[in-house]
Structures are given as C-alpha cells and as structure tokens.
C-alpha cells in the first residue's frame, strides 16, 4: 500500500515538543551538564567525566542514607498497604456513614507536609504533647529527639497517619467496583470470608493496589519535609533520608556537581524500583499454562 508522506505534519507535534522540552528535557539536561563538570564560577569550569558518579557511589554517608531510605520505604509499604486494605474492608457500604468515613479519611490528606511535621513534633513532646505525655505517664521512656528508635517510630507513625487514608480510599473505590454477583456466587460456593478476600477481593483490587503501592513508594522514597520538621534528620543522622542528604549536599555545601550526579542516580533508583513493582504485579496476568 502506498503511503502519503507529508513532512509538514511535524509542525503539529511542535507544541508538545516545546512544552516537554521546557518542562522536562532542558532541566534534566542541565542536571546532566552539572554532573559531568566541576564549576567554580561561570567562566571557570572543567569537564570531569564520570568522576562525580564514581565518588558518589563510594560515599559512605550516601550508602547509609540509601539503606535507611529503603528500610523506611518498605516499612511504610508494609504497614500502609495492609492497613489501608483493612480500613477499606471495614468501611460501611451504604448510608450516611459512608460520607462521614470518607471525610474523616480525606482530612489528613489535605494537611500540608510541614504542618503534619509540626503537629507531630508538638504532639510527641513529653512535656506538652498529648502522646508524648501519655506515654510518659504509662512509664514508657519515650523521647524522639534523643532516642533513634523513638524517632523512627514517630516518623513512621506520622507517615502512616498521613497517608494510609490514600490507600484506604483507593481500595474502597476498588471494592465498590466489584459486582455483587461475585459475592453471591461465593456464597453459593460456600466460600469462607478469607476465601472471598483471597480469591475475589484481592484479585479485583490489584489494579488500584498497583497505583497505591507505586504512589506510596515514590512518595515515601522522596520524603523530605516531615522528618525534616520533626527531627531535623536526627538524632545524629538516624532519620536523615536521601532527599535530605541531597539537599544538604546541594544547598548546604553548594556541591553542585556531586549533587547533580546524586540526583540522577536517585532518579534512576526510583524508576527502577517502580518498574520492578509494576512488572512483578502485572506479570501474573500471563498464562502459565
């Protein structure tokens, strides 16, 4: 078949190319540009090749930060995903309670990150904070400012408080989309509640869970504001996560070359892990027969 080629059609693509160039490609290439040069001032710059990357990959501080980041993100997922599903399952199906639950769940999502940090910073204090004081009264020695374990627990609880709602709302919408006939068939097949969850609800929730897991992974992997406000990354560096390390490097030390190399690696890690999640969860669809 003969195809007609008209090169003027490229003009139609131009607006998109311009938008994408300014929003993504140019900023990204700027970072790439920084990452391969050592810049002292606008006229004094040296091409250094992969030196920054090699340094970054050997940096002990970054290794620690990266490990902390992974532990944190996986802890967040391990708590928020099952908890979100549980909340969604226990929500009412109809009546005015539905709206009430939705509003209550949506509230934490509407609070700005630094406000969340401030709230938990105050509420966790043992002198004037409700939780901190209550724990003290129960005889538990709790101090998020000096005890690394306490700081970790507080940062995690704060994230769970802030973001479990998102998973719960996603799952709730997913559950509502399951036709009643599946539950009816399950009753006739005498399925136990566990079997209903395992073979009907969970499979049907897969697509929303995929979105939930990806969002929560990416978000928690880039977490900055909340721990920064709550603990400032301390005590010591025990709650200093990747983005805070990066910020210190880029703005605190004005080490733009290394920070740029770091940013790109950071970006690639998120891309890679998200791809892994996606592939792992969608792979099961194929027939193994």
């Amino acid at each position: 078949m003969q195809r007609t080629h008209n090169n003027r059609a490229w003009w139609l693509v131009l607006p998109v190319v311009i938008v994408v160039a300014f929003s993504a490609i140019i900023p990204m290439m700027t970072v790439v540009n920084y990452s391969v040069q050592d810049i002292f001032d606008p006229s004094t710059r040296f091409f250094v090749g992969t030196e920054w990357y090699r340094e970054i990959l050997r940096d002990e501080r970054l290794h620690d930060s990266l490990i902390r980041q992974f532990v944190y993100s996986f802890a967040v997922l391990a708590i928020e995903i099952p908890l979100g599903i549980a909340v969604a399952l226990s929500m009412p199906r109809k009546g005015f309670m539905v709206s009430l639950c939705m509003i209550l769940l949506a509230l934490p999502l509407l609070i700005p990150w630094n406000v969340v940090g401030t709230i938990w910073q105050i509420i966790g204090r043992e002198d004037i904070g409700l939780y901190g004081w209550a724990l003290g009264q129960l005889g538990i020695d709790y101090n998020y400012a000096s005890n690394p374990a306490d700081a970790w627990v507080t940062v995690l609880v704060m994230d769970v408080w802030h973001w479990t709602s998102l998973v719960a709302l996603l799952c709730y919408s997913g559950l509502r989309a399951i036709p009643d006939v599946y539950y009816q068939a399950a009753r006739i097949d005498r399925a136990s509640p566990w079997a209903v969850f395992r073979y009907i609800q969970l499979p049907k929730l897969k697509s929303v869970l995929l979105i939930g897991i990806m969002l929560r992974f990416m978000d928690s992997f880039m977490i900055y504001t909340e721990p920064f406000v709550l603990t400032g990354g301390g005590p010591g560096t025990t709650t200093t996560f990747l983005s805070q390390t990066l910020t210190q490097m880029a703005i605190g030390q004005f080490d733009l070359g290394r920070a740029a190399a770091f940013s790109l690696i950071y970006f690639l890690i998120i891309l890679l892990v998200s791809w892994l999640f996606y592939t792992a969860m969608t792979h099961q669809d194929s027939d193994d027969a």
Binding site: P179, V181, Y182, Q184, A185, I188, Y199, I200, P203, K204, Q284
Partner: peptide, 14 residues
C-alpha cells in the same frame, strides 16, 4: 442449591 448467573463468574486468579 447452585446458581449460575447472567454474567459468568470465575475466580480470575485460579
């Protein structure tokens, strides 16, 4: 009693 519905119900993952 067994019942077969208008839209076929199968357990997808099995």
């Amino acid at each position: 009693i067994a019942q077969v519905f208008q839209f076929p119900v199968v357990y997808d993952t099995m």
